[in-house]
Design a protein around this nucleic acid. Sequence first.
DNA 1: CACGGGATCCACCGATCGGTGGAGGGCGCC
DNA 2: GGCGCCCTCCACCGATCGGTGGATCCCGTG
Lengths: 209, 209
Amino acid sequence: MITLLVVDDHPVVRDGLTGMLASDPDFDVVGQAADGAEAVRLARTLRPDVVLMDLRMPGTDGVAAIAELTRLGVPSRVLVLTTYDADAYVVPAIEAGATGYLLKDAPRDELLRAVRAAARGESVLAPSVAGRLMHRVRTPGAGPLSPRELQVLELVAAGRSNHEAAADLFISEATVKTHLLNIYAKLGVGDRAAAVAEAFHRGLFTPNG
Amino acid sequence: MITLLVVDDHPVVRDGLTGMLASDPDFDVVGQAADGAEAVRLARTLRPDVVLMDLRMPGTDGVAAIAELTRLGVPSRVLVLTTYDADAYVVPAIEAGATGYLLKDAPRDELLRAVRAAARGESVLAPSVAGRLMHRVRTPGAGPLSPRELQVLELVAAGRSNHEAAADLFISEATVKTHLLNIYAKLGVGDRAAAVAEAFHRGLFTPNG
DNA sequence: CACGGGATCCACCGATCGGTGGAGGGCGCC
DNA sequence: GGCGCCCTCCACCGATCGGTGGATCCCGTG
């Protein structure tokens, strides 16, 4: 018997997962949470075998929740289940201590197999996610953007010129340009427009009307 | 008794919706589909009262499916249920003939109420979606990008210079610049980087690793 | 302590871009 | 036919940007 905690901000998905898992007598969903903070609270008291965790949630997000569980030494295995397979989600989630990473378009039986595997402590990765990880280890110099670089890129995406961005950050325009050159190198692009596009592709930015 | 067709490419969501609706004796889920083409096929034969339709799906997407149902004169009401509330989805879906537009983070009871309302032929809109529509009517000159403009913007997002983009499209650089100026005006931005960001925000571009 | 990395700054140059103010042809709709 | 929209093209200018090749400071790790 495997006990589970289902974490997702969409009620539809929570119910879907719970229902799907309830159809199998091996599984017992002992709790549900709609955000990261609630997830940590419930995981600490319920101590489920597996936590099915979405990443993008209002308030405390999934990665922060995973890190917190790891820090607290909660023995539950965390299986990430999300729609997004962007770099910016995959790597931090695994670094934070996730046991597996699945995408929501996974078929029913694959999900059930993954939960069983996670309960045994095995690592389960969706194919595209695995590919992303391989690519990551094979690309050494392409580290992530520093916080400052991300700030600069956000301003650029907001239409600020180098000069304006410098004023916003209380630094010189030269520094902004240096940051941008480093950003281009890290993202493998040649200008600010492509850098913004790449930031969206990597999940550094999230589209929000 | 309200008959329903559930359309979503995620098995988890399909099951979640079906389960949620099955708990109420007024509803009867008579079919499920994983993409737009299947949705049209099933809707024609099953003739459900309401079609719960996701928009982003592999193959035929939701908007195309809605348009096809309208064209065929299928009497089912279509209630869009998706994660995305970007301009580029909302307006086309409603133009295509959707009766309502809900977001997946809607609570359980709101969803049930919306389905009943849709079955009666009433229009139901999520608050943020309604806001978008209001804004749309209040902003007259801000029409959508033309196909050509979208092409240009895509090239710019890919890091092409005006000169390179012109070569790609077999037009002069002057034309590319004209298109870009029109794009800036339509998107309400001042440079190419901000235009790319705005395109992602409006759902004109979709992030994809 | 030494090393590396992040953040800051400078001067200088050529290339590119944003902006103006036009113009003409084609297509669909009323 | 006229109107509007889309696509196309031109010349010119100032502002901005990309790129080079440095430099200093601070901080945390080994």
